[in-house]
């Protein structure tokens, strides 16, 4: 009999835990509130199903527990009931899937006015590259990485000369402007993950992946690596600061371009 009671307690406890949990997602700082909504829909549907199934089970265990002289009913199947349950399940699943797919199609469709920001991961730090005045990022390749050219930017590419290089330092983003994060790795798999932005994507050496979002709240956010990348995985942190436009421009003005960074080396060679 204890089991029936425990089953009820499991449902009640789980719901209470869910409602009163101080452990919840971080306050959102991007446009992906849709994702939170989809999660909420899923919580409702799955929560109802979980409670219904387990409570029904608890009732059965209580009501039909063995007593002397009891005999079970004989019912091999019930097509109507099974069909009905299948249809209801199908509807419930569709109710989660359809909004999910709509949001996914937004997630993978980058708006035309999004500015590109490149994130370069390596064991175990983050670097960033912003397009310069020309609004274009120069090409890059892992094989071009050297002690001076740590991000592997193509020195031949004129588009790349004015690119702003932020090596192993904080990234700043202006609030309210969509950004397309271009993700690149020069060694192993990493994953650029800021919990407050909700979005994340693996970075694959030899390829460029992406996601986009619009920062909606100023503040300082911690970047976590979300794909096991070796012993330093847990320590691979970074910082993204979402600034007002003025603050952002002020920060941008202090940064060095690729040409500036490689200039001393070129003069050195000329000597």
């Amino acid at each position: 009999m204890a089991i029936a009671l425990v089953l009820v307690l499991v449902v009640a406890g789980s719901i209470l835990f869910h409602v009163f949990s101080p452990w919840w997602w971080t306050p959102i700082a991007s446009n992906w509130a849709y994702i939170d909504h989809t999660i909420s829909i899923t919580f409702w549907i799955t929560g109802i199903v979980f409670a219904a199934v387990v409570l029904f089970m608890a009732y059965c265990v209580y009501r039909f527990r063995h007593r002397e002289g009891n005999r079970a009913d004989y019912e091999p199947e019930n097509r109507r009931l099974e069909t009905w349950l299948t249809v209801v399940t199908g509807v419930g699943v569709a109710a989660m899937l359809v909004p999910g797919l709509f949001v996914w199609s937004q997630f993978v469709t980058v708006p035309a006015d999004a500015t590109e920001v490149e994130v370069i991961a390596q064991q175990w730090q983050w670097s960033f590259r912003l397009p310069g005045a020309d609004g274009k990022l120069g090409t890059s390749d892992t094989t071009l990485v050297t002690g001076e050219n740590v991000l592997g930017v193509n020195p031949e590419d004129t588009n790349g000369q004015d690119d702003v290089v932020v090596s192993a330092a904080d990234l700043h983003l202006p609030i309210g402007k969509p950004v397309k994060m271009l993700l690149r790795s020069i060694d192993v798999l990493h994953d650029f993950y800021v919990p407050e932005f909700r979005a994340k994507m693996d970075m694959i050496p030899g390829a460029v992946t992406y996601f986009w979002f619009t920062p909606t709240r100023t503040g300082t956010f911690e970047v976590l690596c979300a794909e096991l990348c070796g012993t330093g995985h847990a320590f691979m942190r970074g910082v993204v600061m979402v600034d007002t436009d003025e603050d952002y421009l002020a920060w941008l003005g202090e940064q060095q371009t690729f040409a500036q960074m490689s200039a001393p080396q070129q003069t050195g060679m000329a000597d």
Partner: peptide
């Protein structure tokens, strides 16, 4: 009976992770 409880629970959270966009914040 305990299997049903845990399996239903784990199966339902699978619907979070299987639904591609919900998986984005939750994966890993």
């Amino acid at each position: 009976l305990a299997f049903i409880v845990t399996f239903v629970n784990g199966g339902l959270t699978g619907l979070f992770l299987g639904n591609v966009v919900v998986d984005v914040p939750l994966s890993d």
